[in-house]
Design a protein around this nucleic acid. Structure first.
Length: 649
RNA sequence: GCUGAUGUGGCUCAAUGGCAGAGCAGUUCACUCGUAAUGAACAGGUUGUCGGUUCGAUUCCGACCAUCAGCUCCA
């Protein structure tokens, strides 16, 4: 029987029913078959071994397709596992998926692997690739699959099969040479295709991602069809590390940590403190003047009673710094991990009409969270940090408009600092199977999440969904970013809370004169300042846009004769609102330029006898070099224009 | 908290079971200089902390502290 297959270009080809996807690809062209990693059949990703039995839409996925690359790297992870099994026959296999930019495989091994071991494993992988073993797929009924894995003494694989047992499906395996792995696929046809690969690191990882389980050894790697692509990737990785805020932030004098003070406690040095001030003034003015916020300034600690009402005592106690001993002391205090219950006290202090709502409280709020020791990371994870925290008290009808306004504010802020294009949106939901982590009833969660989903869909937000990432009081829209190592973190969050208002007895008088419980939006606009500063430093490799640069202009007198004029210009520029300083040292001009360049100062103004004579300055712009002479007034106009436009260069 | 790696002047890095060294930065002196490093001299260290082995430990061993990557957790 013949079937009709529509190709990517719209052309219809006829194949004998039962032709494999790989043979169909070969029918299109030999080159395409060689590059093929997987196929898409009617929009579903499938293995190259899949027989085509129905009419349908067909396309070949190569390494340039995301799913093709995934398949390619998944096969690389099998080559890795095969090599590890050859060198360490007692190793137990866990899982080995493809991830963004690479793959990993988890093993249970008695002895830790060193980087020398990784080089040996790489060498064995090369052998396997050279052997160019055909990769075969086969399936077994659950009981036979289980028997096979038990016979091979693979307890983790046996566990995985048991989890699949009730689905009523056969279990699929892939075999290459002597190596057999439980795997859903898809995979390449032969090991020989995995031409260029590298193992990048070896670390610990818990089985099934649960800290109560045994810690396995995870080997990370990456793979490409061509050597040049691998080299380019590894070079890019090295380059990215040079942007690490933890390195340049310290080098450029933005922040430091001090051993006697403690872990996770950042000291903002003058440049960092200035950047913090620039950002927080910007946010406070923007929120208050254009988005209707009112400022609060609330206490940094409170009696435990407050956290008992809010639920933090039950749900967040491990994360708090507690002052005093519950057993012995009459009163126990805790440093605040969140601002919510404090701003609620301000709401509770007076009666509110529905006409007053929404009320938008904003605070530049310092918080304390007792993170465990391994979790701190530069300015990204701290024990003390300051966030642009806001709580909006509103009626249920106002929810969508206010949510939209929060999103708009966040987009504007991220756009202006230049981070917007790097962000992704995550709808963080509760986990119904983990009831101890969350307050409220399934009905309340259902209501809050469906309301949030409707709003997100209305606003056209492109988001992914994640179970078990919600706050204990409600679902969140988390706005995610990645650091130079590719690690994801939440930069901004907007949350819907239908529970805490009731706990605190917050009400408003509705139009009918009755008391109603408001909804609350918890949100931030620029996130936590330290984290945002870290990402800005990484984004710009320390060369911040003019409007954010702690030192915008440095005046460089060429000889001591120009110092007097330099001081006059300094005053003029400072009066115009520019952040300026003078390099007053008796150094050669080349030396002063070099230092200012290394410090990423946006503008250098050179001042020698010629300039003093003609009443100008010689302007050197970061990234462009010497841009010629200007009068001070001309320079001020240009610089202020860039600042007002928040230009990025 | 867990796995692994690391810890030597302010920074980047050498070296060694027997007096710890370089470059940059710093200080002083000279040079007053035109778009990414002027020269010389000087100073700077209980080798993360505490204990053990040893005639002797910075080096070997142990505990702790801190840093880095990953896991878990999380803004």
């Amino acid at each position: 029987m013949q079937i009709d297959i529509m190709l990517k270009n719209g052309e219809i080809r006829q194949f004998e029913s039962g032709t494999t996807a790989f043979d169909a690809a070969r029918g299109i062209s030999e080159g395409l078959a060689r590059a093929a990693c997987a196929v898409s059949i009617d929009g579903t990703v499938a293995d190259l071994r899949t027989p085509l039995v129905n009419d349908g839409v067909f396309s070949v996925l190569t390494f340039t397709d995301a799913d093709g690359a995934k398949t390619f790297r998944h096969t690389a992870s099998h080559v890795l596992a095969q090599a590890v099994k050859r060198l360490h026959p007692t190793a137990k296999l866990a899982i080995g998926p493809a991830i963004d930019n690479g793959f990993y495989y988890d093993f249970d091994l008695d002895t830790p692997l060193s980087s020398a071991d990784l080089r040996k494993i790489e060498a064995e992988m090369k052998t396997i690739v050279k052997e160019n073993q055909p990769i075969e797929r086969f399936t077994l009924p659950v009981d036979e699959a289980l028997a096979l894995m038990q016979e091979k003494d693979e307890p983790y694989k046996a566990d995985l099969i048991k989890e699949h047992a009730d689905k009523g499906e056969d279990i699929s395996f892939y075999k290459q040479g002597e190596f057999i792995d439980l795997c859903a696929g898809p995979h390449l046809m032969k090991t020989g295709a995995v031409k260029a690969f590298a193992l990048t690191s070896c670390t610990g990882a818990y089985w099934r991602g649960d800290a109560n389980n045994k810690m396995l050894q995870r080997i990370y790697g990456t793979a490409f069809p061509k050597r040049e692509e691998l080299d380019a990737y590894l070079t890019a990785l090295e380059e990215a590390k040079k942007r690490d805020h933890n390195v340049i932030g310290r080098q450029l004098g933005y922040f430091l940590m001090a051993e006697p003070v403690g872990q996770g406690l950042a000291h903002l040095a003058p440049k960092g403190a200035k950047l913090f001030q620039i950002l927080s003034r910007y946010i406070e003015d923007l929120e208050d003047n254009e988005y209707g916020y009112v400022r609060t300034k609330t206490p940094l600690l409170a009696k435990s009673d407050l956290y008992k009402i809010s639920g933090h005592w039950d749900h967040y106690k491990d994360g708090m710094f507690i002052l005093g001993d519950e057993e012995k002391d009459n009163e126990v205090f805790a440093l605040r991990p969140m601002t919510c219950p404090f701003q609620y006290q301000i709401y509770l202090n007076s009666m509110h009409s529905y006409r007053d709502l929404p009320i938008r409280y904003g605070e530049t709020s310092t918080l304390f969270r007792n993170e465990t020791s391994g979790e701190m990371h530069g300015l990204i994870r701290l024990r003390q940090f300051t966030i642009s925290e806001g709580h909006i008290i509103l009626t249920p009808e106002q929810l969508e408009d206010e949510f939209r306004s929060c999103l708009e504010l966040m987009r504007r802020v991220m756009g202006e600092v230049g981070l917007l294009e790097d962000l992704t949106f995550r709808f963080s939901k509760w986990d119904p199977s983990n009831r101890t982590k969350y307050e409220g009833t399934p009905e309340m969660w259902e209501a809050a999440e469906s309301r949030m989903r409707t709003i997100l869909d209305h606003l056209g937000v492109d988001y992914t969904e994640e179970v078990g990432e919600a706050a204990f009081y409600g679902p969140k829209l988390d706005i995610q970013t990645r650091n130079v190592y590719g690690k994801e973190d939440t930069l901004i969050t907007i949350q819907i809370d239908m529970m805490l208002a009731e706990k605190f007895g917050m009400t408003y008088i509705a139009a009918d004169g009755g008391k109603q419980t408001p909804y609350i939006i918890h949100r931030t606009s620029i996130g936590c300042y330290e984290r945002t500063m870290a990402l800005l430093l990484e984004k710009y490799a320390g060369a911040l846009p003019l409007w954010l640069a702690p030192e915008q202009v440095r005046i460089l007198p060429i000889t001591d004769r120009s110092h007097e004029t330099a001081e006059v210009i300094l005053t003029q520029l400072r009066k115009a609102g520019l952040r300026v300083d003078i390099d007053r040292r008796s150094e050669k001009i080349g030396y002063k330029i070099r230092e200012a360049q290394v410090e990423k100062i946006p503008y250098m103004l050179l001042l020698g006898d010629k300039e003093v004579e003609s009443g100008t300055i010689s302007v050197r712009k970061r990234g462009e070099g010497d841009i010629g002479s200007q009068t001070v007034a001309e320079f001020i106009a240009i610089a202020l224009d860039d600042i007002n436009k928040k230009a990025i260069w």
